[in-house]
Nucleic acid binder design. Sequence first.
DNA 1: CCAGACGTTGTT
DNA 2: GTCTGG
DNA 3: CCAGACGTTGTT
DNA 4: GTCTGG
Length: 226
Amino acid sequence: MCGRYVLTSPPEAVAALFEISGDVPNYPPRYNIAPTQPVPVVHCGVDGTGPLKLSLMRWGLVPHWSKGPDSRFSMINARAETLASKPAYRGAFRYRRCLLPANGFYEWKALPKGPRQPYFIAMGDGGLIFFAGLWEHWLGPDGSELASVTIVTTGATGVVREVHDRMPVILCVDEGRDWISGAGGRQGLAELLDAPAPIGLTAVPVSRRVNDPTFDDPSCLEPSEG
DNA sequence: CCAGACGTTGTT
DNA sequence: GTCTGG
DNA sequence: CCAGACGTTGTT
DNA sequence: GTCTGG
């Protein structure tokens, strides 16, 4: 699964990769992004058309039919295997696919005994990766608005498998464009959800400081004994 | 038909 | 809104 | 994901 | 144990 991640590349770097021209949100380097927080998302319009944008959205998808924006119905992950059949995701899967830029993510490995050991999983060169996501636009009765997002997960492969059995669907820039546009049709989307994780992912055990979401600094990446 | 859920993960 | 369960 | 709360009333 | 907040 994916319940914490890292984004240290600046917004301008993400915008350049997707040739996004308009305003971009200004966020600092993040070492411990947690659910409920605003996160940068690459997306187009609510109806699936229009130019690409980079916007902040709340991590934890609030369905448009939800009575309130509280976290009771706030999904941080969506299973790739069942996206199309789940009522809560059907509309978003059809019209509101998106990408969450990241430089890596954390998974916790269950040990024979004792607390779970966090691992940092990233490209060896620290480069940007993109999680497949879905987003929603929620309108409150009082006119309040909220854009929210969920990360699509799949079965873990490669080095991640040693740590955990689920992981985010990771796309490169070109795959990401196709995911958002739906260029390949239903079949194309299914293939993207099944795409192998990129070559070059590494998994390193890190400090348990990351456990506390109020620690959001490079110390979260300090290697530890596995 | 209406009522009630609508989600994932890990752990026991 | 849409699906499932009764 | 993990951490931390988990409650009400009346009074200041 | 289970829910909420980050």
